[in-house]
Design a protein around this nucleic acid. Structure first.
Lengths: 217, 217
DNA sequence: TGTGAAGTGTCAGTGGCTGTCACTAGCCTG
DNA sequence: CAGGCTAGTGACAGCCACTGACACTTCACA
């Protein structure tokens, strides 16, 4: 997760700072546009830097690699979810809290995204990630990192030690597994709206209990 | 180290075939050895091909990319699990069947692996995968592909349509999530034995029910 | 206003990966 | 068993992601 964002509570930073942010944003937007319009693999870093008129070297000073730029917005979405989870009342059980946190964060994520790129561009990027093997792989690895953070959070809520009690990690794993399935299906489906994935998430989360029952008939 | 496998229904193929298999096996073994001894990233394809005395081009004719060679044995393990799952009696519920299939397949996987590489080498490779970001990413992506296959299998067992009923995918997602957690923890832990991961799997799978309960206290 | 450092461009180099082409060796047919 | 066919390979050239080194420009700040 990228740290530096003087977002809320950051007046007009120095000229240098602003220039930097502008360059980064320009690279990000140009990259995502190119990715969604012609595909990730078919986009070279040179094309991105040409579009922004900086050197290739500069790109790699802002983003560790070509993949990273594709996940810049995803970072935002994830920290949004984590914040929503932190905000859940203690009274809610683990699974209930996670469920409410996703649903709540999807209701408000739009604005947060729009500060950086058009929401539509993000959604098309998300679909691109799901459908591009190289990006999907990175996405999944990042997801497990997020899962670990969530596990620690859940454990803290319940006053447990993650290493002593398997339940936090198991619950998060089950929850995340379901989230991935919905993400994938949404990416493959017709309806690319936020509403669609929200609806799907709700429906699939409802099935966790029934799915783990010993007899489905 | 046998140069060919008395594989089921594969007599002595032509000389061409045998040479091919020998080259592939040699590349595989050399690659894994280099990977585990000096790390994945620090091993160049040239080093691998030099060790086997073939051209770099030849390497890429056998393996689509450098990553693929690291997963050759994993392929074996996965199809072993799928076979075990197919063999579970219809009477078992979905989760029960998957659980029994993993445990059963771990009891017998050793011999299957040993036909290709020393079991110890495989285990060290597995740990390397878990601890190398680039490989972990690919591993996770491959896992989701496997999950889809399993979902279809489970659905078939229960006479369901995966797209109409979310339960197969949800159950598999939850199950796989737990499996990944155990794989990761095993990779980080001290005990690198098959027994260790088997034990851990059993313990964690036992926690699925409790973990999803609405109240842990 | 001068000095230091942050940000960038340029250049050279490495390594993964691909296309092409020519050559050789196992295979097959007459 | 000769001669042609083709799969497998090596050699080579080239693309692209990425890195290190160094010099230059531009802002920041004393």
């Amino acid at each position: 997760m990228t740290d530096q964002r003087p977002a809320p509570a950051a007046p007009a930073a120095g000229l240098r700072e602003r220039k930097k942010r502008r360059t980064r944003d320009a690279l990000l937007r140009a990259a995502l546009l190119l990715f969604v319009s012609q595909g990730y693999e078919k986009t070279t870093v040179d094309e991105i830097t040409d579009a922004v008129d900086v050197s290739q070297r500069t790109f790699f000073r802002y983003f560790a690699n070509k993949e990273e730029v594709a996940f810049a917005v995803q970072d935002l979405v994830e920290s949004h979810f984590v914040a929503a989870l932190r905000a859940r009342p203690d009274a809610e059980g683990p699974l209930e809290a996670m469920r409410n946190a996703v649903l709540a964060s999807w209701d408000t994520i739009g604005e947060a995204i729009a500060e950086v790129v058009p929401v539509d561009l993000y959604m098309r990027t998300y679909r691109l990630i799901e459908s591009t093997p190289a990006l999907l792989a990175v996405h999944l690895r990042r997801s497990t990192e997020l899962e670990e953070r969530i596990s620690l959070l859940i454990a803290a809520r319940e006053g447990l030690d993650v290493d002593a009690d398997p339940r936090p990690r198991v619950a998060v794993a089950a929850f995340s597994g379901v989230m991935r399935v919905t993400g994938r299906l949404w990416g493959q489906g017709e309806d690319a709206s936020v509403a669609a994935i929200r609806r799907m998430t709700e429906a699939y989360l409802d099935q966790i209990g029934p799915a783990l029952a010993s007899d489905w008939r």
